[in-house]
């Protein structure tokens, strides 16, 4: 109260600041006047604690990974830890020139791009069909798409390895991408279908009446509106392939992807090399997922659009 009365006589040049702090002090007053119940406070703190634990659960390992990969080997094994490492890029540099890393990186990229293309070329039309048409067995189809994610990778990868050898696409990046696509397709279908559902069908109908056939209406009206979301689901398919390790380790021998390569060669490497490899794997996936998070939320209906 004292502050507000003193500000009341301030010169006009300061009046805007004065009124701001007036509002501030009055809101403080309102807060103290309405005393929150003890119960509310307890819940609020419990909620904050829960959120903090979950966030730390994810962030601490990533932070450690980053810190350790730019530390010297002595710092990694030494104690106590420091939050300000010496910033030595020796291990990263060493890792980069490690035999086979570059070609594994290339394989990973190639597999991820193939996966992305397959997932979108097959997934987006399926998503469009689910969004725009009513057909018999629609709900069953939607359910099967979700259920296919429950299919364990080992069960899929081992028989496929046999079949791939018979067909002659064993140890090929294309074969691997097809397996990765089975993982990525359900997401591609679900994300794109919710995307197309969000575009009013009247926009297409209006285009039809103005002289477009179905494809023209799709290309001129639906596609421009859906493009950001389709890009996002493509990136997501990319990340799924990029991160996948089990099928990659089983289905490739000579043409290892980065994940398979690291699993194989890092088990006998020193700790600092493991950290460097881990960082190189995590960072692209992390950046991509961060860029498309909005669309991943919309897949589950928590859209902020």
């Amino acid at each position: 109260m004292k502050s507000s009365s003193s500000e009341a006589v301030m010169p006009s040049s300061l009046s805007s600041r004065a009124s701001a702090s007036l509002a501030d002090s009055s809101s403080q007053l309102a807060q103290t006047a309405h005393k929150p119940r003890r119960n509310d406070m307890a819940w609020r703190w419990l909620f904050r604690a829960g959120v903090s634990i979950l966030v730390l659960w994810v962030l601490v390992p990533i932070a450690l990974l980053m810190l350790n990969s730019v530390s010297t080997p002595e710092q990694i094994t030494g104690w106590p830890k420091t939050l300000t490492p010496a910033l030595s890029f020796e291990t990263l540099d060493f890792f980069w020139h490690y035999q086979g890393v570059i070609s594994a990186l290339g394989n990973s990229l190639l597999a991820a791009v193939f996966t992305m293309v397959i997932a979108i070329v097959l997934g987006a039309p399926a998503g469009y069909a689910l969004a725009r048409f009513v057909f018999p067995g629609m709900n069953a189809y939607r359910m099967i798409i979700i259920l296919s994610r429950a299919f364990p990778m080992p069960l899929l990868a081992l028989p496929l390895a046999v079949i791939f050898i018979q067909v002659g696409i064993d140890d090929s990046i294309l074969g691997l991408a097809m397996v990765h696509a089975t993982l990525a397709l359900p997401f591609a279908v679900l994300i794109t279908s919710s995307l197309f559902m969000g575009i009013p069908v009247e926009l297409e109908e209006a285009a039809w009446l103005m002289g477009c056939n179905r494809w023209q209406a799709f290309r001129r009206v639906v596609l421009p509106l859906a493009a950001p979301g389709i890009t996002a689901s493509a990136v997501f398919a990319f990340v799924i392939s990029w991160n996948e390790v089990f099928a990659s380790a089983i289905l490739t021998v000579e043409n290892r992807t980065l994940t398979a390569f690291l699993v194989q060669s890092l088990s006998e490497s020193p700790a600092e090399i493991k950290y460097a490899g881990g960082l190189i794997l995590v960072v692209p996936a992390l950046l991509f997922l961060f860029a498309i998070r909005k669309y991943l939320f919309s897949m589950w209906g928590i859209s902020n659009r």
């Binding site: 009247e202 109908e205 209006a206 039809w208 009446l209 103005m210 009206v221 509106l225």
Partner: peptide, 29 residues
């Protein structure tokens, strides 16, 4: 097909294309 009927329609929710300007909307057909 709708496009061959030489009919125009105004929808309840207007169906104005959100990714085009007003001029592009009018010019669309």
């Amino acid at each position: 097909a709708p496009r061959d009927r030489r009919i125009a329609m105004v929808f309840q929710n207007y169906a104005v294309f959100p990714h085009m300007t007003v001029a592009e909307n009018i010019a669309f057909g």
